[in-house]
Lab assay of single mutants.
Amino acid sequence: NQASVVANQLIPISTALTLVMMRSEVVTPVGIPAEDIPRLVSMTVNRAVPLGTTLMPDMVKGYA
């Protein structure tokens, strides 16, 4: 089972991601792979991401 990136807090729309905002967790459905966390830092989300939500590729500008 692959770990995915999960929001560690509410991430408001257009917020630049930082390490403290994300954690890795094995979830269903599978989202962005946890090993991509370093790549996600400073990318922005294009929607509000509630606490505990799995980050999907279409939620992060420039990721997909």
Rank of each mutant, 00 (worst) to 15 (best):
A3S: 09
A64Y: 09
P38H: 13
M59C: 05
L10K: 10
N46S: 13
V49E: 03
L40S: 00
S4Y: 03
K61S: 14
S4K: 01
A7P: 02
I13T: 13
D58F: 12
V49S: 02
M21G: 02
A34N: 05
T44M: 12
T53L: 09
P33D: 05
V27N: 03
S4H: 00
L17C: 03
A48D: 13
N8L: 05
R23C: 05
V45F: 03
N46L: 10
V26D: 08
A34Y: 06
S4R: 01
S4Q: 00
V49K: 00
L19V: 11
A16F: 09
V41G: 00
P33G: 05
L40E: 00
M43C: 07
P33W: 08
R39H: 10
P12F: 04
T44A: 09
I11P: 00
M21E: 02
I11V: 06
A34M: 07
G52A: 06
M22D: 01
D36P: 00
M21L: 05
M43D: 02
K61V: 15
V49M: 04
Q2L: 12
T44E: 10
V49R: 00
P38K: 10
I32R: 01
G31S: 02
E25N: 09
Y63M: 04
L55Y: 01
L40V: 05
G31W: 03
M43N: 05
N8H: 06
R23D: 05
T28P: 00
A34H: 07
A64P: 12
L10H: 13
V60Y: 01
P12G: 08
N1L: 15
S14G: 15
P38E: 10
L40R: 03
V6P: 01
T28E: 14
P38G: 12
V26P: 08
V26L: 14
M21W: 03
V41S: 02
T54L: 04
M22W: 03
L40H: 00
L17M: 07
N1E: 12
M56K: 12
R23F: 04
I32E: 00
A3F: 09
A64L: 14
L40W: 03
V26F: 08
M59E: 02
I32V: 06
L55M: 11
V30Q: 12
N8G: 09
A64S: 10
N8I: 05
M43P: 00
Y63I: 04
T44I: 13
V26M: 13
D58S: 12
M56N: 05
K61W: 14
G31H: 02
P50G: 09
V26H: 13
A3R: 12
L55I: 12
A64V: 08
I11A: 02
Q9W: 08
T28K: 14
Q2A: 12
M43T: 04
V41I: 13
S14I: 04
G52V: 03
S14C: 07
S24G: 08
L10N: 14
V20I: 15
V27A: 06
L19D: 06
V45L: 10
V45M: 07
S14Q: 12
G31F: 03
P12Y: 05
P38S: 12
M59P: 01
T18S: 09
M22K: 00
I32W: 02
V20H: 13
E25S: 10
T53N: 10
V26N: 09
Q9E: 08
D36N: 09
T18Y: 03
L55C: 03
V60W: 01
D58V: 10
S14A: 12
G62A: 08
D58N: 13
V5N: 01
A16H: 09
M22L: 11
I37T: 06
S42V: 03
E35A: 13
M56C: 06
G62E: 11
T44C: 07
G62H: 08
V20F: 13
A7H: 01
T15Q: 09
G52Y: 05
R47K: 15
N1S: 14
P57H: 07
E35C: 06
N1W: 15
